[in-house]
Design a protein around this nucleic acid. Structure first.
Lengths: 243, 243
DNA sequence: CGTGGTTTTGATCATAATCAACGTCTGTGG
DNA sequence: CCACAGACGTTGATTATGATCAAAACCACG
């Protein structure tokens, strides 16, 4: 493998020095707690674009946190139907429903070359009593995921195509902004098919809706380079700004 | 209040003697662990039909487990739109996304007179080290919820009305069966409007789809009394039997 | 009783799906 | 480095599905 040659990111980073620390771990840790935190990650792995994150590392349940890159989670049915459940980027936890996922075959696929930190829950429990708020932070991560899915159900259940696409773009914009990227210039990592599946639409409909947005001068779009021109108008198309 | 007069169910039950024990708590507890378990529930409360479960008991985060009764969870948007996220019955945990729900205003409404056990997470953490598998059980509860929502996204995102209603009935049937009720004779606790919102349809469409099922001799229906006549055929309409 | 919410059914309409064709990228292998 | 195959993306024409509008019957509860 080309692990040493091409390595675009250093995998030998400790949590206490990681820029994502405040997103992964509880806030306000003291120095003693910080050193304990460094024992949480059992390994950091690379996932190439197009390949799936392999969970169930030697049978132990673990939290997977994206260090760099971009993923989609996909639920596949017996009869070959796929449903994209979400898109995830740096700092996001993925596979929280992993325990049962062998039945449901929920895949986690990298949309670009990525790196992931593996935190076995056994490690969490080992230090939880000496790190203030660690347990409640883990619960918070689960909570975030459930809330995220709730808002997906909202647009799947009750929005028209225009509202869905507008909502999607706005969410993308704010998650980019949260990570210090431009909320205006978005580089879409996912295909129109992925977006369509996520939004419960067909890819032609996504394409047409984006075309309408271009015509109305809400966005500019060149393949996967998207620029939001009129954020206010886009916001007024999306139904609920808090979800 | 009529707490003492009408009380249909005894609220003074300890977990160790509760019939839902195996659903709420990890399996295979020894007698020492069982006695510890009894300290978990801080209170058991009644919720009248039509009223909402009040969470955030004096600010502490807690797990809410349905002892008896029936609930729906509903996400309300700023602009007055409602989305039913799920239906829940005895043994189910609700409000796992509670931490953030003040923002998202996710209501938990009783569809019949119900009772709920409140388990503060602080109590869980206090005894977790002396009860084998308690932490991983709590994670399992969150996992179950995420998996449940995943399968909702599946039908919201990729099924037609017939598949949605068939899937809904089958899920209802199996959750009744799990609890020792007839999987054939179902007493619907929710309105057509609730079902429609849950399935991402309009209530007229639900009504019509059920009418089609009656005509095809898949079910019998009288208001909210539903009898499944042809489970096999219903199964073949539902897309994915495992989700 | 009677009022308001629920459920059903009918007629019509609108939206997004489907079918189809074509253009365009991208990554691979020669 | 180019050619090519296959995936991706766009646009048009038509259709189908479920939404919408409307009305009536029914039940439930005060």
């Amino acid at each position: 493998m080309d692990m040493k040659i091409k390595a675009p990111y250093d995998l030998d980073v400790s949590c206490s020095k990681c820029s994502l620390l405040n997103k992964c771990m509880p806030a306000g840790l003291n120095s003693t707690e910080l050193t304990r935190i460094d024992s949480l990650v059992s390994q950091r792995i690379r996932v190439k674009r197009g390949s799936d994150l392999q969970r169930f590392n030697n049978g132990q349940q673990s939290l997977n946190i994206i260090r760099t890159g971009y993923f989609k989670t996909v639920l596949s049915t017996n009869d070959g139907r796929d449903q994209v459940l979400g898109f995830h980027m740096s700092g996001d936890s993925i596979g929280l429903a992993g325990e049962l996922s062998e039945l449901h075959s929920c895949r986690v696929t990298a949309l670009e070359d990525s790196t992931v930190c593996i935190v076995p829950f056994a490690h969490v429990e080992a230090i939880a009593n000496s790190v203030n708020g660690l347990h409640s932070h883990i619960r918070h991560l689960f909570s975030l995921e459930i809330n995220r899915e709730n808002s997906v159900m909202l647009f799947l259940g009750s929005m028209n195509s225009q509202e869905r696409v507008a909502t999607f773009l706005l969410k993308l914009s704010s998650s980019h902004e949260e990570r210090g990227f431009s909320p205006i210039d978005l580089n879409l990592k996912m295909s129109r098919y992925d977006i369509a599946s996520y939004l419960g639409l067909k890819h032609e409909t996504v394409s047409r809706t984006l075309a309408r947005f271009i015509k109305s001068k809400l966005i500019n779009l060149n393949l996967r380079e998207l620029k939001i021109i009129n954020l206010v108008a886009l916001n007024s198309l999306a139904v609920d700004k808090n979800n």
